[in-house]
Structure formats: structure tokens, C-alpha cells
Write a protein that binds this DNA or RNA. Structure first.
Lengths: 328, 328
DNA sequence: ACAGTTACTGCAAGCGCTTGTCATTCGCCC
DNA sequence: GGGCGAATGACAAGCGCTTGCAGTAACTGT
């Protein structure tokens, strides 16, 4: 059996409350006494039981991190950064994967609610309505989703998408397509709108494809559509889809970028290795993870801290999957 | 404030113990009573507080999963599978990243110990001695590490490595090299030994390089060594290193696979996209994650369940980074 | 009709810890 | 030397829940 506060108190010859305060309110106990307590604790290998502490204080020192799909290379850097950042602040993190299923997402928030001081909901797939409701039972910080009144860290998808369209336009493309991802994703909506607006402003046509599953298979599924529409420039919901799209286009005898230019979003690591290397929008996922944790801990400590939302810049990385439009 | 067991009891007009039993020992309470309790609970949105429950039962229904590096594509499939599997069994999982640091690893096990029913230690970097000691304070299941008396899920690295060497030998390579990874990794030791043994048995020379960091940079760092030794067949600790190595070799004017054949280990997703596509050993990481969770829950439920260790098969995937030896 | 079950349900202690309250002790001042 | 406040530490209630024990009522068989 692990040592409890009582063991330490007994060994030291003080009351358990003194032991407790030696850890959580050092200034309230005599320096010498505290020294003896700490020594005894160290000797016994005593560590306060966080769960028990949480029972009285209401603070668990745990947070939840819910993501759509751990296996999507977009998330690991975010998870890693969030976890490391939390750990430095003495927080542990529950990581959960919804497998893109909104129902699972909702259930997870509820299940985790009691065990955490708050949860970071990354790229949620549930509706805004439900999010607002969930936010009433647990402190929430959103990533990649804007909901009135809730703290969030966002990426500048509009600016980024505009850069992509401009890039394509500069290369002479006039017929564009957007291969859409999950309909529930805020990012998807932002991109779709921004792409449509930019294309219109520049006098280009833009076909919206999808929705597709945000994976290589989903991208592959969009390939035929692309061919059918005759678009020469395609921007995808994410890199995974772009990769699958490029691969499938190759199989269909369509060369990238000679015949069709393909752009991804996320700049996940595989995109740097493919041939052609993928032109993409790089997302500051690690920074987003850290920032989300910061906001969450802030809020957890002080319930009416500001509910600010931060928007992070994204950067267009031009590589080899985009090139001059073929003259028709 | 969230509803507690007391609220439910009050609304239903029964004692809290009856409410408690309605959830955890249904057969002990009258069907009609239980129905009223459940209805009231649903109406109030009551959910038992797991932390409070754990305090008396000693079971948290949480597990820990500690990995060396979340950002290494090897781990996400394992994490995802383990998490999903655990969730189906009503367990939540703390995921922690040690960033390859043994000290962090030890600290994490200790910090998590009180909050979990056990922890899965994937690809540990700490020494066996310490692992044995840690196992005394928390139920442990190892992945990619063999320690006498502890449950583990292993990969058949010896068989796999032998396959790699044989593959290279068949292609006519006689001067081989092994680009080693973290010295603390069991996998690394197994591979090194198996490679040496196989090479010896087949009359080939094998140079051991490293240790190197198990990343693309580490692989790149091994490139000069490879050139210096004149090896024409190189097998690496993992895919990340193989990718970095191949890339750097290209920069040095060495062609893969014409001049040097490169083999990786793990079959992470980027390896399928590079040009040339990487020949590698595929590891059943998702299965390993599920199995580790199964073993852990088994052990958590029944402390003296068998401490079996399972060994999973790995498969050589021949792609384009290996080819016939150039005749000298 | 009665002892012996059986089926529920209530009671209360206690899991490991925090914290408001109170009793002592001590140093210090006038 | 008496009085005061600060410093220190003990007490005990209580966080939300489980569980051994005991009480009650209805039911069984004879």
C-alpha cells in the first residue's frame, strides 16, 4: 500500500492537517516542522492523492483533449505540444479520439467532465448548439471552431485560402475546384466560403466538390469529380485528401502539376516527402495546442477570465504540386 | 453545480445507498425502485463521480499510456487503437509523451500511479532495473521491452531483422550497415544483435553505426558514416531515420537504390509516399495497442492473472528503396 | 401459527485529503 | 508582570461515493 497523509503525520508526530499544509500552504507551518514533514514524506515515498484532493478542492489538475482522429498527422503535433505544456504546469491530460463521430464527441465530453478542470475540443464535429450546451457543464476551449461567447484558438483560414487562390490565379489557372471535407467542420466552411469569395473577386470559376471523408480515400474519391469538372487547380480540405487525390489522379493518367495543380492544407510530415512535394498551407498546430492549454488553465483558475479568441496565422508553402496552367 | 448522489436520493425519496446500488449492484435493489432512481438520475443529468468512487473502491477506470514521442508516426496508430479499445471498456486514458527522456518517463509513471489502474509503457527508454522498481508501485504492461516477470507485448524483431538481411543478401549485397537508434531501446538491441548474427551466418560484413536520434536528423547524421564504410545495404532503426538517411544520401550524390539500398522499420505512413518508396518492416502497432490494454485490464481486475508476454509478427514490405547491389 | 428465509433498504463508517475554527504557546510591549 | 496579537498546530466536518451490517417486512414450508 502506498503511503497516505496519515502515515506521514504519524511518523512525523504531527496532525494530518499540518502535513497537508506543509504541501499546500507552506507559509502556515513552521519551517522546521515542515522540514521534518517533507523528509518523512520523501522517506515514505508519499505523494498526495490528486483524486482525493480534487474531492474537496474541486480542482483535479487534469484536462481533457478531444480530437477527431489521432491517426491524422495533423493532430499529433498539437497533442504533443498540449501535453508537454500541460505537464510543465503540473497537469495531466486525457486524450480521446472521436473517430470523426459527433455522438462520440458529445459522450466523451460528458464522461470526462467530472474528472477534469476543462477540456480542449479540437476540430469539433458536433453542432454549435450542442457545444454551447456542453460548455455549461464543463469549461471548454475550442480549436478550429468559432462559437459566440466561447474561448477559441482559430487559424486564419480565410486569409490562407485567399493566398492559395491567388497563388493559383498567378499561375494562370481559371477553373478551380475545392475538394470539401467534413460538413461539420468549421474549417471546411471557412475555406469553402473564402475560396468562393476569392474566386469570384478574381473572376475565376470554382466548383465545390464533396463532402468527402478527410482522408486519402476521400481525396481519391474526389479525383473523378475533378476530371469531370475540368478544373486545373484544386485546393483540398487537408493534406491527406490532397495526397489521395494526387495519387489517384496519377492512376487516371492525369499528371500533377503539369495537368492539374493540387494544394493541400496542414503541412503534415508526409507532404514533404511525396513526389511531387505538396504545396500546402502550413498550420501552427503546436502553437495552437499550447495556446489552448494556456487559455484553459487561465479559465479554470479564474472562471470569469476573458473569453478571448485568438487567430493564428497560416502560411502558404509552395512546393512542387502546383505549376503553370496548361494552355488549353 | 452538477447533481450528486444525494440529489438523486432526495428526489427519489430513498437513501443514497440505494441510489448507489441501483448503479453498481442492480440485483440488490427492487426493480421498481431502481426504475425511479434511474429516471430521477436521468432527469437531473446525474453521473457518478468516478474520482469519488475510486476513493473507496480503489479502481479508477483510468489507465496511463506513456510513449516516447507522440510526433513519431509510429505511435499514433498505437495510441488511437489503445484509446478506442479502452473506451469500449469504459476506461479513460491519460496519454503522456516523454520526449525520449528516461527521467521524464520515470516521473510520469510516479505522477500517474495514483490516478490509474495501470500504465502501458510503450518503447520505454529507462533501464530494466528501474522498470522492475516502478512495477512495484503500479501495474505495468510493457510494449517493445522484455523484462523478466513483467507482462509485455513484443514484436518479433529478430525474425524481422533476419528477413531484412536475407532480402539484402539475395540482392547481392555483401557489405551491410545498421544505423542504430536510442541505446536504451530494447528494439534497438534486438535488431543490432539479430543483424549481426544473421550477417555472420551468411558471411556478410555488418558495420554498426550510431547511436543516433531516432529521427530524420539522426538518419541524416548517419549518411556520412554509411558512405565512409562503403556499405551498399543499410538497415535503420526506424523509418524516420531511413527517410532522413535516404534524403541526405541524395544530397551527397549517392542514389537510392542504385548505389545504396536502404531499409526502414515501422512502415509509418510517409514511407508509402516518398520516392523511392521505402522498403520496410511493417509493425502491427494498432494490434499491439489493443493487446496491451487487454493485458492491463486483465491484470487490473485480477492482480495475479498470468504475466504472459505476447510476440507479434512483423512483415517485410519490399518497395523501391532496395535493389540489386551495384557490382564493384 | 411459527421459525426460518428471502428480498430490500437504511445506517454509518470510512476512502485520502482540505480547510474553517479554535486552543495553545510565545514574544513583546508598556 | 499582565495583556495582546501573531504564529502554530490540532480538531472535525465534509467532498461524493461504497459497502458491511442490521433492520423490516413479506413469504416459505410445515
Amino acid at each position: 500500500m502506498a503511503a497516505t497523509i496519515r502515515d506521514v503525520a504519524q511518523v512525523t508526530g504531527v496532525h494530518i492537517s499540518t502535513v497537508s499544509r506543509s504541501f499546500s500552504a507552506p507559509h502556515l507551518v513552521n519551517e522546521a516542522t515542515r522540514g521534518r514533514v517533507l523528509a518523512a514524506a520523501a522517506r515514505l515515498g508519499y505523494r498526495p492523492n490528486r483524486a482525493a484532493r480534487a474531492l474537496t478542492t474541486g480542482r483535479t489538475y487534469n484536462i481533457g483533449l478531444i480530437v477527431a482522429n489521432i491517426a491524422n498527422p495533423y493532430f499529433p503535433p498539437l497533442i504533443k505540444a498540449a501535453q508537454a505544456h500541460a505537464r510543465e504546469r503540473d497537469y495531466h491530460v486525457f486524450v480521446a479520439d472521436t473517430d470523426e463521430d459527433p455522438a462520440v464527441e458529445e459522450e466523451l465530453v460528458h464522461a470526462l467532465a467530472k474528472q477534469v478542470d476543462g477540456v480542449v475540443l479540437a476540430s469539433p464535429r458536433v453542432g454549435n448548439r450542442l457545444i454551447e450546451q456542453l460548455a455549461r457543464s464543463v469549461t471548454l476551449v475550442l480549436v478550429n471552431r468559432r462559437v459566440e461567447g466561447l474561448p477559441a484558438v482559430l487559424m486564419d483560414m480565410r486569409g490562407g485560402t485567399r493566398q492559395v487562390i491567388e497563388h493559383l490565379a498567378r499561375l494562370g489557372h481559371t477553373r478551380l475546384a475545392f475538394a470539401g471535407g467534413p460538413p461539420g467542420a468549421w474549417t471546411n466552411r471557412e475555406m469553402r466560403r473564402a475560396a468562393a469569395a476569392s474566386a469570384r473577386a478574381m473572376g475565376l470559376t470554382l466548383e465545390v466538390l464533396g463532402p468527402h471523408h478527410p482522408t486519402e480515400n476521400g481525396g481519391a474519391a474526389a479525383a473523378e469529380e475533378v476530371v469531370r469538372t475540368g478544373a486545373t487547380g484544386v485546393t483540398c480540405y487537408n493534406d491527406l485528401m490532397a495526397l489521395g487525390l494526387a495519387e489517384r489522379l496519377g492512376e487516371l493518367g492525369v499528371r500533377v502539376p503539369e495537368d492539374v495543380s493540387v494544394v493541400g492544407v496542414d503541412d503534415i510530415s508526409p507532404s514533404r516527402h511525396t513526389r511531387p512535394k505538396l504545396t500546402t498551407l502550413a498550420m501552427p498546430t503546436a502553437a495552437a495546442g499550447r495556446l489552448a492549454v494556456d487559455m484553459l488553465l487561465q479559465l479554470a483558475g479564474d472562471p470569469d477570465a476573458s473569453n478571448a479568441t485568438a487567430t493564428l496565422d497560416v502560411a502558404l508553402v509552395v512546393r512542387d504540386s502546383t505549376g503553370p496552367a496548361r494552355r488549353s
